[in-house]
Design a protein around this nucleic acid. Structure first.
Lengths: 137, 137
DNA sequence: AACCATTCCATGCACGTGCATTCAATGCAA
DNA sequence: TTGCATTGAATGCACGTGCATGGAATGGTT
């Protein structure tokens, strides 16, 4: 069954781990790009900011340590620091120094932050459903 | 079965499409970051450059139009243009104007380009296998 | 031929990210 | 207490990316 056609290139790489990785790469580009645009246009925040808000929403006591937050999100420490800075600038989040360890910083959702998150959630879900299969950006 | 525990947050989002998306986001960050580092350290190219070389390797006649290349890769037109520019600067690729349509640009792998690709391929595969399950960056 | 819409690629600009560094606060040992 | 390694977070810098634009080449219309 070893077809000697000249048009069957890219077949071997399309199966197995490499193929899965390539699919992931394509899907990531399509979905994240579409999400980025929709969230930016309709709510004025980027994907990183949305994901950050999303983690804060189901925080146990409302607060979240930067260090812990960094563990639960795909962002690096510096990227998270800046994302939170942008959110704070927009009044969606506030930072407070930890009492017992004044190196630590607590991040907490403000009322405006929760309001915007609730508004952005439907957008996020819609775009996700719309672009998951393909198309998108 | 509606458990009223106070510790089962993040469950609803972990299943279904949103959960899959979040997994993809995490895996993308881990794998692409690890690949980026390994390729950069061991071969002096980034992930975008490697993926570009990869497309060029199984080009039919060795040449590849920029416009076609842009369709077959997750990069935007401008990102691709710059990736090719970097590859050309390193002598891994050369650009030539199409004779019949002088707007079009053909990209072609040089000998050095193929050589470096052959060397980088094992690295790519190793890192991919090592980071796909988790860990990584 | 003259004109215009379209296509292809490159590029200026703004922006988010990673890396490495910096600074402050903490814990520990002498 | 003093000294030092460690940790948490912010930031300067370089770099890759997307968006919008620009310029060149093409095709079609008059």
């Amino acid at each position: 069954m070893t077809r000697t056609s000249t048009t069957d290139h890219r077949q071997p790489a399309s199966t197995g781990l490499v193929g899965e990785w390539r699919e992931l790469l394509d899907r990531h580009a399509a979905v994240s790009c579409a999400l980025e645009k929709a969230l930016q246009d309709e709510h004025g925040i980027g994907l990183s900011e949305f994901e950050t808000l999303d983690r804060l929403v189901d925080a146990n006591c409302g607060k979240y340590r930067m260090a812990d937050l960094a563990q639960d999100i795909y962002l690096s420490q510096s990227a998270l620091s800046r994302a939170v800075a942008r959110l704070e600038k927009d009044g969606l989040v506030d930072r407070s120094v930890c009492d017992t360890d004044r190196r630590g910083v607590f991040v907490r959702l403000t009322d405006a932050g929760r309001k915007l998150y609730d508004a952005a959630l439907p957008t996020h879900r819609e775009v996700l459903h719309a672009t998951w299969g393909g198309g998108g950006c």
